[in-house]
Computed example of a mutant assay.
Amino acid sequence: MSNYENQLNKVKSANGFIAALDQSGGSTPKALQLYGIGEDAYQNDEEMFSVVHQMRSRIITSPAFDGDRILGAILFENTLDRKINGMNTASYLWEQKNVAPFLKIDKGLDEETDGVQVMNPNPTLMNILKKAKDNDVFGTKMRSVIKSANKKGIEKVVAQQFEVGKKIISAGLTPIIEPEVDIHASDKAHAETLLRDQLLIHLDELTADEMVIFKLTLPEQPNFYDSCKNHPNLLRLVALSGGYTRVEANHRLSLNNGMIASFSRALTESLNDQQSDKEFNTALDTSIQSIFDASCT
């Protein structure tokens, strides 16, 4: 079988979760600060991305980071251009760790209108998808944000996600569709109802061989997205931590049977640049095991 087919089998049926290591230019300074590295450690974006790559490399090369508990890892495009132990990052993930690589492909968010932020235009999308395919990347991730239960806005978010998602499928990759509902939205539960309705409409419009992954905010009502999870066109239902602490995110996730994690901040919240390798690996192992356990309910 091809690498893609092996990755597909793993992502579709194995136990585990997807690690989100795709902090972009806007979110990297905060991620580094939480890791114990201040903005005085770098002078420009290139130096910043080099520093955050060191953090990601430390996570990925840790003995705790393994394919027995982690199905995939989402990378930022800059990370795809860099190496780990002399290997292309995506190749290292699959060949050394048995972890399927995903690539963040969106170009950030537009200004809020109709209670949502759609994705910015991405004129280089097809070039990025070719680059991902050439690097044996399995899938992609793209994020929109829903701030309130505005039906028009939510319809717009989901339509855009699926429009781009079909282009990703045509390029031979599997898209993670991520319409995040803001955890602070006062009408979060209503927004989730409107979102679920739209997701099901668009799932029904896919052909039999068009498969997608949903990455959704942990819902107010446990098992709320079961109708999506059981749809034949949904490869996997995954959850974002969305600002919840790891303890809270794991608790909410454990109430949603068959939903698995794709956490970023919740995965790395106990890690620090000043930790010894032993301390770092122990903290990462504890984090990974707790998220794995919550993903196996």
Rank of each mutant, 00 (worst) to 15 (best):
residue 70 I to W: 05
residue 99 V to G: 02
residue 39 E to P: 07
residue 113 T to E: 14
residue 74 I to T: 03
residue 102 F to H: 07
residue 35 Y to T: 00
residue 100 A to E: 06
residue 43 Q to K: 13
residue 76 F to S: 01
residue 51 V to E: 03
residue 96 Q to H: 08
residue 52 V to R: 13
residue 47 E to P: 10
residue 73 A to W: 00
residue 110 D to R: 15
residue 63 P to G: 09
residue 119 M to Y: 05
residue 87 M to A: 13
residue 77 E to S: 14
residue 77 E to Q: 13
residue 119 M to S: 05
residue 48 M to V: 07
residue 82 R to D: 08
residue 121 P to E: 08
residue 45 D to Q: 15
residue 70 I to E: 03
residue 123 P to E: 11
residue 118 V to S: 15
residue 57 S to I: 12
residue 55 M to G: 00
residue 62 S to D: 04
residue 40 D to K: 08
residue 110 D to M: 15
residue 121 P to K: 05
residue 73 A to C: 14
residue 92 Y to H: 02
residue 86 G to D: 01
residue 69 R to M: 14
residue 109 L to T: 00
residue 88 N to Q: 15
residue 96 Q to I: 15
residue 70 I to Y: 01
residue 74 I to F: 12
residue 64 A to F: 15
residue 35 Y to E: 11
residue 64 A to Y: 15
residue 44 N to H: 10
residue 42 Y to A: 09
residue 56 R to G: 01
residue 73 A to I: 12
residue 95 E to L: 15
residue 90 A to R: 00
residue 106 D to K: 04
residue 123 P to H: 02
residue 39 E to R: 09
residue 63 P to D: 07
residue 95 E to I: 04
residue 105 I to V: 12
residue 103 L to Q: 01
residue 90 A to S: 07
residue 37 I to P: 02
residue 116 V to T: 03
residue 98 N to G: 11
residue 63 P to I: 10
residue 100 A to P: 01
residue 93 L to W: 01
residue 71 L to K: 04
residue 112 E to Q: 13
residue 37 I to S: 04
residue 112 E to H: 09
residue 83 K to L: 00
residue 31 A to W: 08
residue 67 G to S: 09
residue 124 T to R: 14
residue 64 A to T: 11
residue 78 N to F: 14
residue 123 P to I: 08
residue 98 N to V: 07
residue 64 A to L: 06
residue 116 V to Q: 00
residue 58 R to E: 10
residue 54 Q to F: 07
residue 75 L to M: 15
residue 114 D to P: 00
residue 87 M to D: 14
residue 108 G to A: 07
residue 56 R to Q: 10
residue 69 R to Y: 03
residue 77 E to R: 11
residue 123 P to N: 04
residue 84 I to N: 03
residue 87 M to V: 06
residue 57 S to W: 00
residue 95 E to A: 11
residue 92 Y to R: 06
residue 51 V to R: 01
